[in-house]
Every structure is written in C-alpha cells, then in structure tokens.
C-alpha cells in the first residue's frame, strides 16, 4: 500500500508540467478515477485547501490524500513521491547542462529562454491580478510589497508574515467600521476601483463580506 502510494504520486509528479491548477486533472485521473481513494468533490476540496497553505501546492494536496489513506507516514510518503521525479530528472539535466554550459549554442538558447521566463512570470502576474488584488487596500499591499521587494529592504519571509497580519487587521477594521449597513465599505471600494472587472470584484467582495459577518458573529 505504501509502495502504491509512492508510485501513484511519483506518476503524478513525473507527468505533470507546470504545477498549480494544471496538476488538478492529473490528480483526478490517478487518485479519483484509477485508485478511487477519494471522490472528485473531495479531490477539488483538498486541492483548494492545499492552495491556501504555504509551500508546494502539489505536496500539500499529496499529504492530505496520503494522510487520509495511511496516516502520517502515508502523508509523508505521498509528498516525497511527488518530489521524487523532479529530484531525479532535474539533477540529470543539471549535470548534463553543466557539461555543455560553455557551448555558444547553449548560451544562445538560454539567452532566448531568459526572455521567455520574464514574459511567463509577468503573464502569470497579470493573470492572477484579478484574483489577488480585489480592492484598494489589496492594491496598496501589492504596491508596498513590490517596492520593499525590489529594493530588498526586508527578508521575503518577513514581508509575507507582515502582509498576513495586515490582511487580518484590514478585515478586522472593516468589520468594526462598517456596522451601519451590511457592507458599505466594500461597495465604496468597488466603486472607486473602476478598472477592475465588475463580475470578479463582486464575487470576491461578496465572499469577503460573508466572512466578515461570520467573524462578527463569532467574536
């Protein structure tokens, strides 16, 4: 069983390109369709929880599935399974490339690749923008973090930790300052941010409001 867990997750690691959402179909094929370790709905849930946690999303999801089947050891084995193909393939490539790195052809190819890397990173930023920068305070966090990071004023880990605390504080303050109506602060921010796609903003703000009011009831 442990071996099967290891092999299944190694298979996922070996045959998915590009991480993130593109891994979900592979997870479903191997874990839901083939091994029937969990239902499709559970799979999607675990994957979305995995995205909310720090670290490698694929490893997070693997740990959940491994734990569900075989406890703590299962979780650890599943995570190592996902990483195993990378370990082998990347080290082979790295060893291979280090022998040919001085060839002009290889250097030219990498000059082209570097440009592509820049473009892919910036494309990813544009794509994630609507999902991450939902309103004005979020845009402020984005800008401050951008400047702090470019000039390396703080360790990246510290920036992340502070941003998490800021998020909690902003939502908390919003909850405090908006007792007159259901959700006046959020709506005003949507209005003051016309560049955003309306549908996305509404959806995001809607979910924010739900959480804020939940928090209010709890505390």
């Amino acid at each position: 069983m442990y071996l099967k867990l290891l092999l299944s997750f190694s298979y996922i690691g070996a045959f998915t390109f590009g991480g993130g959402y593109s891994m979900l179909p592979m997870f479903q094929r191997v874990l839901v369709d083939k091994n029937k370790w969990l239902t499709e709905e559970e799979m999607t849930d675990l994957f979305s929880i995995g995205q909310c946690l720090p670290g490698i999303i694929a490893a997070n999801t693997a740990v959940f599935v491994g734990y569900k089947n075989k406890g703590i050891t299962g979780g650890a084995i599943a995570a190592f399974g996902v990483a195993l193909p990378s370990l082998i393939v990347i080290m082979l490539i790295a060893a291979f490339l280090s022998n040919f790195a001085d060839l002009p052809v290889v250097q030219s190819a990498f000059a082209g690749l570097r440009i592509c890397v820049c473009v892919l990173i910036l494309n990813a930023v544009f794509k994630l923008r609507k999902h991450s920068v939902v309103d004005l305070p979020a845009a402020l966090i984005f800008s401050v973090v951008f400047i702090l990071s470019v000039y390396m004023f703080l360790p990246v880990a510290a920036i992340v930790a502070i941003a998490g605390v800021c998020g909690v504080l902003i939502i908390f303050l919003r909850k405090k300052t908006g007792p007159k109506g259901e959700d006046p602060p959020d709506n005003s921010e949507v209005d003051s941010n016309p560049s955003d796609d309306n549908n996305t903003s509404d959806v995001n703000n809607g979910s924010d409001n739900n959480n804020t009011s939940d928090g209010g009831n709890a505390s």
């Binding site: 990813a124 994630l128 999902h131 973090v145 941003a163 998020g167 902003i170 924010d208």
Partner: peptide, 23 residues
C-alpha cells in the same frame, strides 16, 4: 474567517513579490 482575512493580505503580497522578481 481568520484564514480568509490572512489570505486577503497574503494574496496581493505574494503577487507583489512575484511581480517584483519578474520586473
């Protein structure tokens, strides 16, 4: 709600970091 509000700050921060690295 605590996780959600932390993510409210973490998402734009993570994007800001990636954008800075990209630029």
């Amino acid at each position: 709600p605590l996780v959600q509000s932390a993510l409210y700050g973490l998402r734009p921060a993570s994007l800001g970091l990636i954008a800075a690295a990209g630029m």
